[in-house]
Design a binder for these strands. Structure first.
Lengths: 231, 231
DNA sequence: CCGAACAGCGAACAGTGTTTGCTGTTTAGA
DNA sequence: TCTAAACAGCAAACACTGTTCGCTGTTCGG
């Protein structure tokens, strides 16, 4: 149909994910940059100035080139975001050695994940968006399955539990990031009687026994222990 | 400083939320459209073609006007999204009458919230974004506090529990919306031993006893029952 | 009744992601 | 060895986006 030679990212292959696509062909001059360098620059930019600052032009400028040139290495901005995600997920390595209590191990994993969100706040915006799951994310998932090996329940239950864990972690991460940004200002409080009544109650001496761990603990035990066992 | 007359949305008031801002002044011709009509058009557009289709130009075109004219009624697109959220949250009314079991009531609330997400898939993208909470959202929150009145625990615990509930609901909503969109394609499965081992296990006869209710039940009881009581 | 305040509108501005010719370079195959 | 296909880099352009601005015409308060 088109007599123009195959363009870069979408290297002929219709919809192959970026990880399965070769970085370059055989003929032609050597590329000046690399996929890794682009991702590194993009991550640095996102860490420093937020995800909104990661425009194709800005990333290209950080590498001393033009926006259009990036499309020799990626097929779209979404591809770049996927690569960025996989890059920072790699920071969860090395995975801690196997312990004797799977619940404690899972909680440790959750804490590490939360720490990752704290180190890269843009992850929250990137992660919740239909995207391709990269090899590092798969490896992390594989490790979770390993941790849950002693749990004798359905495999699907484990999958669901892990999904819930990452979901709740991102929930906490978002709550932390958006702390104090919700503006109640200008609201007529008198219209919400139960709310003001609740506020009138004497405030307790700040229990706060780690909501994060408490939530995850009740969630994991609830999801995995009650599940029907298998052979 | 500027001798240009006050522009619309940001009616002099520096940062007052959109709900506390009057729709129009006293002088001048009667407005052709209204805030409500704009929100209605925007919601209809989002329901039909997704949130990405809700551009200022598209909404304006649906009302037979230009994009710039909308700024007589709103101060930004974010304002419009906030108004859209509050509009559909109003669909949760009327709130069901008070029952005898607060846990069942909360689960009902959660199911309604999930149904709302199913009716307006764009809500997920809109809701998780630092935004102003509108009067309808406040009323919904007030109702949750009412439901939790018989629970004798700290107020902050109730707040956290409600936040967790809406968070988990949106988690399920996103999971539903993105079902089957995660592409594992092109991955070298051999690199993930525990994953393939888990898949080798005999798949159980699909227990699936409503993960949604099971999760929320274990979460709410875990968060509210274990909390220290007060007076 | 007059001038300030307002509504509507279209053009323009500053961005964005992406596509497209184009030139020059490298290499595979004849 | 020579040619032709494939490739890298680049600047300009395209089709968008949210938002601003100047303008004309309308409407009401003092």
């Amino acid at each position: 149909m088109s007599d123009t030679p195959g363009r870069p990212g979408d290297r002929d292959a219709s919809r192959q994910p970026i990880w399965a696509r070769p970085e370059r062909g055989a003929r032609g001059p050597a590329p000046t940059h690399s996929r890794d360098a682009i991702v590194t620059a993009a991550v640095a930019l996102a860490d420093a100035e937020g995800l909104a600052a990661v425009s194709m032009r800005a990333v290209a400028a950080a590498l001393g080139t033009g926006a259009g040139s990036l499309y020799r290495y990626l097929s779209s901005r979404d591809d770049l975001l996927d690569l960025m995600t996989d890059r920072v997920v790699a920071e969860l390595r090395p995975y801690p050695p196997a312990g004797d209590d799977w619940l404690d191990e899972m909680l440790l994993v959750a804490r590490q994940q939360l720490a990752l969100h704290r180190a890269h706040p843009w992850l929250i915006e990137v992660i919740q968006r239909p995207s391709g799951v990269g090899p590092e994310s798969l490896a992390w998932f594989d490790n979770c399955i390993r941790i849950l090996q002693p749990v004798r329940c359905a495999v699907t239950a484990k999958f669901e539990a892990i999904a819930m864990l990452t979901g709740v972690v991102s929930l906490f991460a978002r709550t932390e990031a958006a702390a104090g940004s919700a503006s109640f200002a200008g609201a007529d409080l008198a219209a919400y009687p139960h709310l003001v009544a609740a506020f009138r109650q004497p405030s307790p001496p700040a229990p706060r026994t780690d909501l994060f761990e408490r939530t995850l603990r009740s969630l994991l035990t609830g999801l995995l222990a009650a599940s029907p066992e298998v052979g």
